[in-house]
Design a protein around this nucleic acid. Sequence first.
DNA 1: CCGTAACATTACTGGGTGGTTATATTATGG
DNA 2: CCATAATATAACCACCCAGTAATGTTACGG
Lengths: 129, 129
Amino acid sequence: MDQRIPCLIGLEHEEADVMMVKAMSPELLTLVAERFKALADPARLRLLNAMRPGEQSVGELVEATELSQANVSKHLAQLHTLGFVKRRKEGLFVYYALADKEIFRLCDVMCGRIEAELKDRERVLRRAV
Amino acid sequence: MDQRIPCLIGLEHEEADVMMVKAMSPELLTLVAERFKALADPARLRLLNAMRPGEQSVGELVEATELSQANVSKHLAQLHTLGFVKRRKEGLFVYYALADKEIFRLCDVMCGRIEAELKDRERVLRRAV
DNA sequence: CCGTAACATTACTGGGTGGTTATATTATGG
DNA sequence: CCATAATATAACCACCCAGTAATGTTACGG
């Protein structure tokens, strides 16, 4: 799990700096994949997004996401199992909140990729005119 | 796509700083989910991991990952479509390389979560003794 | 107690997808 | 040309999983 392998830094072949990087075992990668899978669903991302302003009850999340109650509960259970959200019970209500903000760093990176892609596509379209 | 919503900063209720953050539309979240899905598979993560040292031919990737050739080709096609890898043809061979290193920032965040989780589990175990 | 409200869980089903096997494509050497 | 090597594609199957509908659980109020 903490084995190390060489890794090119500059991506371009000119600057062939090499850094030793943690090699990831297949077992670790399986765990990582499992986490990514939790974020690989629009419904779960909408739930996480709905929690940005702060903790929300299940009912509020149902309303915000326009998903069925059963569906929301199931997705929340998954997110909770993997540690993406924390729960707090208060009477009849259960409040969910983001376990940390790291999640949106991940989303922002993905959004960056998408933006770049859209910009690229736009550039190609302009060239085609 | 560039609408803004309030978002708590400190996660703890004491410091209730609020920042306006980009709200993500369901459409954007669907695109984001699609990207995460590409990373939500052990085989594809192993392929990406195998490209850390630099570009690799399909055959090399088959050997490194111990996946079938057809399987590798299919996964590479997916990763290429979503812009995670770039290809370079040279004679009979096709060389694949990471499109950028951002990908491993993502994986490292996930690894951090897993490490924390393992540490936590360990702590609970110690307490149980 | 009992009814009800909030949430969780179960059983089920349809669509999506990872893997395999077989076949197609492309390029090279003779 | 033809055989072959490297890669891509197609067809197929088994499995997983998101959504739904129904039911279960828990807590509150009267």
